[in-house]
Design a protein around this nucleic acid. Structure first.
Length: 139
DNA sequence: GCCAACGTTGGC
DNA sequence: GCCAACGTTGGC
């Protein structure tokens, strides 16, 4: 079965793609928003996750692979937070900015564009096609 | 730094 | 359980 693609946002001041490069594998935790959790819980091993820098940079900066099933974040006492293990596959040399994504007008129905506060979401297949065409070799 | 758009909390 | 007030996120 084909891998699904998701997108996860991070504030680079808290955890950046540079940190991820050092770690290679990281626990992606702290997700509590019910809408975002829906996507975390749907992730399967070998699915792909775009890493997105929010807060200023606003761009997709890399691609990771899901290495574990979703699990309840042991560090969160409320039991409402879930986490997942991610392995970095690639840090992009040229980030795919939100500006460019918006300027194509192809993805106006994508949550990334119209629901800015959502931190984890799925990625439409059309976006993958567009990325492969517009940024050859990047993924 | 501002503010829109959400999410969360707490009084009733 | 409702909803006003407050807090947080993230684009600009």
């Amino acid at each position: 079965m084909k891998n699904k693609y998701y997108l996860a946002k991070t504030d680079p001041k808290t955890y950046s793609i540079e940190d991820f490069k050092q770690d290679k594998i990281t626990t992606w935790d702290g997700v509590r928003n019910p809408q975002a959790l829906k996507y975390i819980k749907a992730m399967k091993i070998h699915d792909r996750v775009f890493i997105y820098h929010s807060m200023g940079q606003s761009a997709i900066v890399g691609l990771a692979e899901v290495k574990s099933k979703p699990f309840i974040d042991p560090k969160d006492k409320t039991g409402k937070s879930w986490a997942i293990e991610l392995k970095l596959l690639k840090a992009f040399s040229k980030p795919i900015t939100l500006k460019i994504i918006k300027s194509t007008k192809l993805f106006s129905t994508w949550r990334l564009v119209y629901q800015s506060r959502l931190s984890t979401m799925d990625v439409p297949p059309e976006f993958i096609t567009w990325v492969k065409k517009s940024f050859p070799g990047i993924i």
